[in-house]
Design a protein around this nucleic acid. Structure first.
Lengths: 194, 194
DNA sequence: ACCTGAACACCGTTCAAGT
DNA sequence: ACCTGAACACCGTTCAAGT
């Protein structure tokens, strides 16, 4: 078979696609995940309908902007599992994800909202990542380093929540690492507690 | 002096004020803190300009809807301080606040956003509450029950963050108490930790 | 096959005109 | 003193008309 299984897109379409993503990244970096789609089309110099043709929903656009990063975070999780002891692997990955959280304002909201919406384009790539990272949690739990009543979603929600906090006010942004530390400490099993 | 220090408002103004609040509560309960102001005016049967005359900003409206609750939460904190031992008083109050968090969708966002905005009408009443509740934290810390590197804002941010999580998805809403428990556990001083 | 922009139904905010 | 709604500048989304 040749390199085109589906029909090759027209040249102008390919160029528009690329141009949209380029501009969208810039605008979303400025205005956050709720950025004006109209503004993106305007700045990209294309018709509004063209934007919608390439990305029928906002999530579709976000997925294209974030997909690679989700994949990389999944790969990082897989790598950490083999190179690091359970506890280190988990905390390291969580720090990585916390950093990811800062690339766009509103990112944590976007991710969390689409968590249980299987129709969202963000669902699949995010789920894959969460499943890979979930193994790090299981490992840490089996090693007795994390409470057993913490689910993967619990933990994921908490990291995103700390990211959300950091978005709310400058002074809180400065405390992000500290807050993440506090939260993660709470996940350790109670040693000598009632 | 008589009962009117400032001039008494006209009857129609008083009625509109009350009607707005009544309808606003209903609409915000339905749509969350980002509810359409136009919709509120429409449903209240008043002109949009009238809504703006009574509440020049959305925060002003929210403050009027939430002010009493903030005051009550402050009073609860003051009461708990005298009736309960430090640790109980703190966790009890936090549970109370966590419950408050559920009255309107988007409430945690609204509160957190205006935390460092002294111009917001939500600022004052919320600050007063936080200061009273802050004493519960201090007491718990002095009794050695809570890590000393936790500030009042840290803790307030974390409770709101758990409220935010619960807003994001139904399954997470069911875990809200569990998540709050996890987070609060993380605030206890490390007994025998490295 | 793809692009375009007008059209529609919404917002928030302001302000001249009314009573 | 207070109310009203039109006016303005924005949205997101759709779709007939173009090439």
């Amino acid at each position: 078979m040749t390199e085109k299984q589906t029909r090759a897109p027209r040249l102008d379409a390919r160029r528009n696609h690329a141009r949209i993503l380029e501009v969208a990244h810039a605008v979303v970096a400025e205005q956050g995940t709720q950025a004006s789609l109209r503004d993106i089309a305007r700045r990209a110099g294309i018709g509004l309908g063209t934007l919608y043709r390439h990305f029928p929903t906002r999530d579709e656009l976000l997925e294209t902007l974030l997909g690679e990063r989700f994949d990389r975070l999944a790969a990082t999780a897989a790598a950490l599992e083999t190179t690091h002891p359970p506890a280190d692997a988990l905390t390291e990955w969580l720090a990585e994800y916390a950093a990811f959280t800062t690339v766009y304002r509103g990112l944590t909201s976007s991710v969390m909202t689409t968590l249980e919406d299987e129709n969202s384009s963000l669902h699949a790539s995010c789920l894959a990542m969460r499943q890979t990272a979930g193994r790090l949690l299981s490992n840490a739990q089996q090693a007795g380093l994390v409470r057993s009543d913490v689910t993967g979603i619990d933990l994921f929600a908490l990291v995103n929540a700390v990211g959300w906090i950091a978005e709310q006010a400058p002074s809180l942004s400065a405390r992000r690492d500290h807050l993440l530390g506090l939260v993660l400490d709470g996940l350790r099993p109670a040693a000598g507690r009632p």
